[in-house]
Simulated assay, not measured.
Amino acid sequence: MSPAIFFAVLCSALLHAGWNSFIKGSARKDLATFSIMMAHIPIAVIGVLLSPAPDMASLGYLAFGGFLHLGYQLFLMRSYMHGDLSQIYPLARGLSPVLITIISLVFLDVSLSGIELAAIAIIATGIAMQAQSAWKSQNIHSFLLAFGTGCFIMGYSLVDGTGARISGSALGFYSWLSILNATLMLAYVALFQPGLIGALRTVSPVHTLIGGTGSFCAYAIVIWACTQAPIALVSALRESSILFAIVIARFVLKEEITRHRMLAVSLIASGVVLSRLGH
């Protein structure tokens, strides 16, 4: 992996943790989430204009991915209404490789190396510690929402990865996916929370643009990097976002991070990186 790609993926990880912290730190998580998704549209239009159209064979993946991203965003928003960034983010990111491993073993007849199995065991231990903490603090609702968020991350990771490869145009695929996702979000809000549309004008345009650009670029960079370097290395480096999130939670959002939570997060982050490198 070249220094340029290494730095780009690190930037992607920081951007992802950053826009999550923007939602968590907002007084209205629903409005912050909605504004970020709407900010994707102008950026995605530029991506569409600059990229070849995705192959027709990828359209089914694109459509399914749009609904999975919507579910992810709605669950993420509600997760941050009940739990801390330092609790929700590691759980949601860490659950994905565990769930993908279970599906691979049970349904896809995939064999895993000893390193991969050890990594999953480490992640599962960290997740169990987070669940125990949530249970003791009577905040199990946040754990369940984070679990749901992780399920959607697993789903769109599998669908987007396959669709982008079939499309022949990673940026074109993601740009169209972002437009569809934003359209679905707008339809959802119009049906269930129409007041958010009018409330958009109360959100700082600068904050919206920064959050939307960061969110779009974070994923676009990862897709690009996977075409330039081994996917396992890109994925492992990408999960450094968990550590960025912890730093932001502690020093920007001023969350209290106990030794128990720090140990759990460290296990999840280490296991995720190890699982990627084990491929």
Rank of each mutant, 00 (worst) to 15 (best):
L95D: 01
S96Y: 05
L99F: 06
I100C: 12
T101C: 06
I102E: 02
I102H: 03
I103L: 12
I103C: 11
I103S: 15
V106A: 12
V106K: 08
L108G: 14
D109G: 14
V110F: 12
S111F: 10
S113G: 15
S113W: 04
G114Q: 10
I115E: 10
E116L: 00
L117M: 13
A118S: 15
A118N: 08
A119P: 05
I120T: 03
A121G: 00
I122Q: 01
A124R: 00
A124D: 02
T125Q: 00
T125W: 00
G126I: 04
I127R: 01
M129D: 08
A131S: 09
A131R: 09
Q132I: 06
Q132F: 14
S133M: 13
S133R: 15
A134S: 13
A134T: 07
W135A: 15
W135K: 12
W135S: 14
K136E: 12
S137Q: 14
S137D: 15
Q138S: 11
Q138D: 14
I140R: 12
I140V: 11
H141D: 13
S142E: 09
S142G: 09
L144Y: 13
L145G: 02
L145M: 10
A146F: 03
A146I: 02
G148E: 01
G148Y: 01
G148N: 04
T149M: 01
T149F: 00
F152I: 05
